[in-house]
Design a protein around this nucleic acid. Structure first.
Length: 448
DNA sequence: GTAATCACG
DNA sequence: ACGTACGTGATTACA
């Protein structure tokens, strides 16, 4: 939030001044992109401009960070990283820069020759990506250690040591900046710092989430996220009744899909079947291919192909919708979301099948991802209006694509739960119910 | 400045 | 026969 420092001084009561400079700054940014859009005036006036003020308030509000906790975590983690570094040097028989993919590749594949035919990147370097290393880790302790080194140094450099440095010197809180103009689907992005990629998938990463805490002892941190919003949207857009009914019955959607494609009762779906069905459901949103599917599962390409065929047999309208989207894009040069947000696809009629294929996947994905973005934007605008009007002490702080995070003043808790859930679920009506999971606690991890 | 890698939805 | 999952941002190394 650099404009905060440039524009005014320290007093937080001068919120109005902050707001003005914030709006001006962002408006410029937005107008520029408006020129590139066409026939998007309604969207601009009814969504993006009102959202501007909502985002400004969130940015100015910021979020509290537990610096003491991060400091302790940093000490522990740094020690661990040093130990691992020594072990790696010992196994490698030399010291080198483990953070250099080039040097690491030379150690693993030239010196130690742990595999005969190493994968290369497009520039001809050895690939040492997580995916490659994971396959080699079973036969090499060195590779195992490198993977551990990578994950720890990522957490340390990007989050644990970096976030405390980005506390605002006047508010002592973390103020991200939301950008409305970079994501081609209509999503927001978050920068300086990015608070939309705070770790959650690993136990070690989850520690970082604990550092995001409520304003003070009178507050909880509350998180509300849409359940399966993208899948619900594509079910609705395609009018695929088999999927719509599963959502209406509030079934576990991946189990329901598995039950359909593997022909077993839903309560007898195996873990593996559910997991494979989940991958296809995700794949559908991205624009499936047998290759992509086999990459993500233990299935080979033939099995993947059969699974996709079976899937479309059970969800025929989905198949039809995908074909319709592609032909709409071919005829019109763009696709659009539920609010008419367009994504132009200049490569949709390309002679090059690789380039065209990518555009076709965009034609499927953009309306889905973009409609989800539209819907949460409506919810945010409406929630902010209610919070302002009602003079709530509770504040909306963060948006993470399908999730909103709040500082909730404890006496307002019940009211806030109701208000948030309600505004999110009724933000925009589609052919399936939208449901929101909501939790609260002392920190962001507890709020999940 | 670009490439590689990896954090998230 | 060929090459492929969608959307982002930050950090590090290296030319």
């Amino acid at each position: 939030m650099h404009y905060l420092n440039v524009s005014v001084n320290k007093k937080f009561e001068e919120l109005k001044d902050y707001e003005v400079s914030c709006l001006t700054y962002k408006l410029k940014n937005l107008l520029k992109s408006d020129l590139e859009k066409f026939n998007q005036i309604k969207l601009y006036n009814e969504i993006e401009i009102p959202l501007l003020k909502t985002l400004a308030k969130m940015e100015i509000e910021g979020i509290n960070l537990d610096v003491k906790f991060l400091k302790k975590l940093s000490e522990r983690t740094t020690n661990e990283l040093e130990d691992i570094t020594k072990e790696i040097y010992e196994l490698a028989g030399e010291e080198f820069n483990i953070s250099s993919p080039k040097q690491l590749g030379e150690v693993l594949f030239d010196k130690m020759k742990i595999i005969s035919n190493p994968k290369k990147t497009k520039t001809g370097q050895y690939s040492t990506s997580e995916e490659v290393l994971n396959e080699l880790s079973s036969k090499s302790d060195l590779v195992k250690l490198v993977l551990k080194f990578r994950s720890i140094s990522k957490l340390l450099n990007t989050y644990i040591n970096s976030l405390p440095k980005q506390l605002d010197k006047y508010t002592n809180r973390i103020h991200t900046e939301y950008v409305q103009t970079v994501a081609s689907t209509g999503r927001l992005s978050s920068i300086n710092p990015n608070l939309q990629n705070i770790p959650i998938r690993t136990n070690r990463g989850r520690e970082v989430r604990k550092a995001f805490i409520a304003r003070n002892k009178d507050y909880f941190l509350m998180a509300a996220d849409y359940s399966q919003i993208e899948l619900r949207i594509i079910a609705s857009l395609s009018n695929e009744e088999n999927m719509i009914n599963a959502f209406k019955k509030n079934e576990d959607i991946h189990a329901s899909t598995a039950s359909a494609v593997f022909n077993v009762p839903i309560n007898q779906v195996s873990k593996e079947q559910r997991s494979n069905a989940k991958v296809v459901n995700f794949g559908i949103i991205y624009g499936v291919s047998a290759f992509g599917l086999s990459n993500q599962t233990n299935l080979n390409r033939t099995e993947s192909k059969q699974l996709i065929e079976k899937y479309f047999e059970k969800y025929p309208k989905l198949k039809q919708y995908i074909n319709n989207q592609i032909s709409f894009a071919r005829n019109n040069g763009y696709v659009e979301t539920v609010l008419g947000r367009r994504r132009y696809l200049k490569d949709i009629n390309s002679q090059n099948s690789v380039v065209r294929g990518a555009a076709e996947r965009n034609a499927i994905n953009a309306p889905v991802q973009g409609s989800a973005a539209d819907i949460i934007k409506i919810a945010m605008i409406n929630i902010q209006r209610k919070l302002s009007k009602g003079n709530y002490k509770s504040k909306m702080l963060l948006q993470i694509h399908d999730e909103l995070v709040f500082d909730v003043f404890k006496p307002e808790l019940n009211e806030m739960i109701e208000l948030t859930k309600n505004e999110m679920e009724k933000a925009f009506e589609i052919n399936v119910p939208l449901t929101v999971d909501l939790n609260y606690g002392l920190n962001w991890l507890e709020a999940h």
